[in-house]
Design a protein around this nucleic acid. Sequence first.
DNA 1: GTTGACCTTGACCCAAGGGCAGGGTGGACG
DNA 2: CGTCCACCCTGCCCTTGGGTCAAGGTCAAC
Lengths: 258, 258
Amino acid sequence: MVYGLTIGQVAAFAGVTVKTVRHYHRLGLVDEPERDRSGYRRYGSPDMVRLVQVRTLAGAGVPLAEIGGLLDAGPERFAAALDDVERRLTDRIAELTARRTVLRRLAAGDRLLLPERACAALDLMAELGFGADYVALQEEALILARALVPEVFDSFLAQLERGLGDPQYVALMKRCRDAESWDPDDPRLDELAAALAAKLLADRELLAMPAEFEARPDAATRYGLINHHREDQAPAAARLNELLEAHLRAVGVDIPHQ
Amino acid sequence: MVYGLTIGQVAAFAGVTVKTVRHYHRLGLVDEPERDRSGYRRYGSPDMVRLVQVRTLAGAGVPLAEIGGLLDAGPERFAAALDDVERRLTDRIAELTARRTVLRRLAAGDRLLLPERACAALDLMAELGFGADYVALQEEALILARALVPEVFDSFLAQLERGLGDPQYVALMKRCRDAESWDPDDPRLDELAAALAAKLLADRELLAMPAEFEARPDAATRYGLINHHREDQAPAAARLNELLEAHLRAVGVDIPHQ
DNA sequence: GTTGACCTTGACCCAAGGGCAGGGTGGACG
DNA sequence: CGTCCACCCTGCCCTTGGGTCAAGGTCAAC
């Protein structure tokens, strides 16, 4: 016959597990109560009140390490701390809501990694009759560009938009797409490269971007990564690129090597 | 001169730390990329896309252990999983919002551990002129009762309400409150105990509660815990209780011992 | 040629408990 | 009286999603 509740009873009342109560003891959040003659902890009502206070704060997301000081502080500091906790909760809710929005976009198959404007350009490509595969390739290139050289991403995108607004350039792009399935030794490749070079030189705006790369320390590496990405899957495209670069360099355009 | 981004670059782009990327490698969420000749990891764009996918799901709270299977599964299972994740997020938001509400109540000094009806009774006590300390004592007793014998909490509360509706009983309660500051040997204590016993016997409803305790296995322990709680701080109250119990037992009322 | 920023692996640390082992207690039932 | 089951005790390792520290290798720049 002993006074006090057992650990299981207080735990059940406070809505926590026995393990949790012992954890709080170990952290010093709730004092260890007296033991009965068989070593069981026996709790009185003040222990219970304390446990529920701790539980309420912990449940609201206050780190256990802070709770002790909070409960033992004066009521004015306690009130201030509660304000703070509430602010943190509100932030967390907003954050989760934002994540949910992102997830919804993901579920809807939206393009997560690109801004609205880039998505519009890609949609335009699809409308213009470029196949889904080719659009996907462009999308990846844009993502890469944004990752590697965010400060020139805009001009990269502007170049694409400008090209898409020019029927002649669109026609050339479509021919490039078709060229991906050609043999790497196909003589038409050089023909196409020459036409492309002529077009780019006629409308220098379309060439603006590579120059901006130069401002970067490891420009060549980044250029190579974007320009040659996925070329292993289309040898003809690699060859076309090579030929185009040669044409441009021949007339003095400065293009990074590799 | 090597292809590919370093781990720091992909990490920065994906908005995670270098350590996190390596963590994902160890869990098999993102394949280890090729190494350059000095052993550095070198990432291509597919790695980056994968990393961002993982990051998006992880950020939404999907456990890392599930993400691999999710991304490698078909799109229909992926879509279903996204639904599930979104549901979990919504639940979590609701939970946090509820916690915030509780915190607000706590900050406003509200009585968290008691239902509305009990709070009303306590407010009534305050209105009737019982001091804040005494009301707080009653509050603790109610909390204890609810924790220990939830099924008789209602009748415990009903008894309190009934007592507060009876001016004679209220007068006796006030005298009990005053008695807390008396000397434990004060002869007025037995006088008061006799008056209380007479009142309780005259209105048997006020005595209903202790009988219900009997239905409990360890009734006596629980009764003692509630009835004698905080008595160590007011020896006169302990003495008064003792005397009252003696009076009641003397006329045959069955009260648990200790 | 040295500095500073980056990379490598490995080992340990954190919250907030969960799970399990191995053993002691208490009350109820037969 | 024994036996059963639920509960209690301590102590140890496990978890998730990384952070931190150590000890050393590498790269680009001044």
